[in-house]
Design a protein around this nucleic acid. Sequence first.
DNA 1: CCAAAAGTGTTACAAGTACACCCATGA
DNA 2: TCATGGGTGTACTTGTAACACTTTTGG
Lengths: 227, 227
Amino acid sequence: MKEEFPTPSVAVDIITFSIKENSLKVLLIKRGVEPFKDKWAIPGGFVRIKESLEEAAKRELEEETGVKEVYLEQLYTFGEPSRDPRGRVITVSYFALINDEKSEQELKATADASEAKWFSVKELPELAFDHARILKYAMKRLRWKFEYTTLAFSLLPKKFTLTQLQKLYEIVFDRKFDKRNFRKKIRSLDLITPTKEIQKDVSNRPPKLYSFKKRIGEIVEILPPNK
Amino acid sequence: MKEEFPTPSVAVDIITFSIKENSLKVLLIKRGVEPFKDKWAIPGGFVRIKESLEEAAKRELEEETGVKEVYLEQLYTFGEPSRDPRGRVITVSYFALINDEKSEQELKATADASEAKWFSVKELPELAFDHARILKYAMKRLRWKFEYTTLAFSLLPKKFTLTQLQKLYEIVFDRKFDKRNFRKKIRSLDLITPTKEIQKDVSNRPPKLYSFKKRIGEIVEILPPNK
DNA sequence: CCAAAAGTGTTACAAGTACACCCATGA
DNA sequence: TCATGGGTGTACTTGTAACACTTTTGG
């Protein structure tokens, strides 16, 4: 069965965040074709008939960055008839979070993209289509997830210091937190266990290493202290 | 432009909640055609080529219930290739909240539906497709909205009593709240103003009437006291 | 011995929770 | 006068916020 009317096209767009150089970055492509040729845009592509939406998002992301294991979450579906001048395109947006090590590799140009680049969310270029709005929404979701779930831990190595964790929050919220209160809060949540190791080879007092003991994404109201 | 592959169909499904007889109800239809003929399902239909997703949801909801002014919010997009045995159907789900007075009218049967009926969320029938999952997700969102936004007020008349408001919360969360703490919390949020009126014709002490002074859906952490 | 980041506790204030009795009305 | 729901305050506990100094290492 299929209805008798012309059908819209369905695409996925993936807003990919990463932390690099102590700043929150988002992956954008430079469009190689009209419309919006030479404008920056959120990467994406059409959903194939036999793949799920999430599979499509994963595939596009891997084509772009080479990264396979990522946190991926559906954001919102944008479907205004006028949002794409070429025709009716409904886009299901996803947000992805990848950590720095995994995303070190060279970005690949693809069919419609002449270039791909990481932008600091504080220095964004003008964006094609309604992508500025989509990105703004993704930022909101990212912060929400950091506040109310354990998502942040997906960006840390197996063993990490409390200062690393705090820096992550400071970058995502673009704000400083009080060290003592932050630590008190994290410890009270029973999310981490101290390992017996300490980090060596630092030219200051060596920090203790902790490991995360819950599931990524679990809901816990970590909430940035000093709200 | 249009990609060269077969395209999925795009539908909207609308999970419609209402409070009736002191219980949270959801609107379901009995399917008149295969697959899942005679099973209950969430009402929905295909998106037309020139309407937005939200317009489609509004149209379907009005066809079903006759109700025009509703709170409507996008939920999630389900797109597993196997979710509809007839072919590839991606469905954008919406949740709607309508108040009792508006929804009193007769429900209309439509093309694919032999019958439409309000079900208590505590006594749900078996559902077609992946609709049980969708409904579960909608419930979660509804509660979230009651906890963190002023959505509840959309179900109250212009002037209402604090007991009415509390009852709403008790129905949605299926739990009792402490009267004094509930009132203290609501008052501290600066959401309502006392009118000078009191409700007459009750066979007990007549309650004071209040009016809501913010925007529906605004974020405020109303949060049910006695969490 | 200096620079750099790690580590640690206390006090004040705000918010949440538990809890029981009197009040105003209609019948 | 009784039944019914309306209305109110206080004490306790918990959570949040502000705040400064000592420790350990490498160079």
